[in-house]
């Protein structure tokens, strides 16, 4: 267990450094006439943008992959759960009277913690409720039935937010002032970007520890491996699946809150776009594999920013999905594969 985490940490640190260098290299390709220090500064700024966007995709992708791992359902409503998370956070912050940057640091931390806690619990309950009412009755139905139900739930969530809150972008409070910045290798990066990345990493490590090291996590893994055998061994299948949805949706809720802080504009149909990218991330990393989902999320964020930095911004989407196709042609199970043994 500890060995596995250590190994993961080493690999992650290596990937971070390599992708940093790669981004600087790609930036050099995009702006060849620039001086070396300028290229390093731009590449570094781009690198932190990619980490931030990637962290959001990765958090959403985790929910897709966990649900697929345990009941082999592609939960198309998950992107919209993320969107609801963004709106729940928006409602919390605005109802508390916070519309803009909070100057006092202790207050800011307090409000953010409260926001994360409430958003994640609300979204977790929403996710578990969706499972209870829309998916559980169809658990033994043909595969297509829950798939279509998931699409249905997706539209229902969009419609509810569209009618009850707004049918067009609303400005979400940017609680963390953009004046808080740090300078690294000539790049001035908002502290918010680093904060988002760190929050995402903490949540991902917590998930790994939970799945790998707790009784409930073991129940999740065993259910993923063989539902009937797990049941015979005394695992409460319904509760385990409900908890999987709770955790996946809570992570999407956190991603929604982060997205609102980062972007400053949220809209009822953002879940479709972001959800599709996150789903792609999950497949890219190896669906059913939580480490793979995180890796896939960062990879997509990285490719999106790389497209811009090499001057191919008009080709962004084609590039993302070309990479997906290439990876799947050579590794149909995704970069890390499905990890059938412990795919939850």
């Amino acid at each position: 267990m500890t060995f596995r985490i250590l190994r993961l940490a080493l690999i992650a640190a290596g990937a971070l450094v390599i992708s940093w260098l790669l981004m600087i290299g790609l930036t050099w390709l995009g702006t060849r006439s620039e001086s070396f220090s300028n290229v390093v500064a731009t590449g570094t700024a781009q690198y932190f943008s990619a980490l931030t966007i990637g962290a959001i995709y990765a958090l959403i992708a985790l929910g897709y992959t966990m649900v697929y791992g345990i009941i082999e359902l592609i939960n198309f409503a998950h992107g919209d759960v993320f969107m609801v998370g963004a709106f729940v956070a928006y409602l919390i912050f605005t109802s508390l009277g916070f519309g803009g940057a909070i100057k006092s640091i202790p207050l800011l931390i307090g409000i953010l913690l409260l926001g994360f806690l409430v958003t994640m619990v609300v979204l977790g309950v929403l996710g578990a409720a969706i499972e209870r009412f829309a998916y559980r009755p169809l658990r033994n139905a043909p595969r297509l039935a829950p798939l279509i139900t998931a699409i249905g739930v997706s539209f229902i969530l969009q419609n509810v937010v569209q009618v009850l809150i707004s049918n067009s972008p609303v400005p979400s409070p940017q609680l963390v002032s953009l004046e808080y910045r740090f300078t690294l290798l000539g790049a001035s990066v908002p502290l918010l970007n680093l904060l988002i990345f760190l929050v995402a990493v903490v949540l991902m490590i917590a998930l790994q520890v939970f799945v790998g090291g707790t009784r409930l996590g073991r129940a999740m893994r065993s259910t993923a491996q063989d539902r009937e055998a797990a049941q015979l061994m005394g695992v409460n299948i319904n509760a385990t699946i409900a908890i999987t949805f709770f955790i996946g949706s809570a992570l999407a809720g956190a991603a929604g809150l982060i997205y609102g802080l980062y972007k400053g504009n949220i809209v009822f149909n953002l879940g479709f776009d972001a959800g599709l990218k996150a789903f792609t991330a999950a497949v890219l990393g190896g669906i059913g594999n939580t480490v793979g989902a995180a890796l896939g999320g960062f990879a997509i964020g990285f490719i999106e920013v790389a497209a811009v930095t090499t001057g191919l911004s008009r080709w962004q989407e084609a590039l993302v999905f070309s990479v997906l196709i290439l990876v799947l042609v050579f590794r149909p199970a995704g970069i890390l594969g499905q990890q059938i043994g412990e795919r939850a």
Binding site: A41, A45, A187, L270, A274, E304, V308, T309, G311, R314
Partner: peptide, 23 residues
Amino acid sequence: KRDGQKYSASVDYTSLFNSVKSL
């Protein structure tokens, strides 16, 4: 520099601006 970015719900402009800062 000249760029085009189609608007969508999840579009991000920071990387575009990063890429021109040094110019």
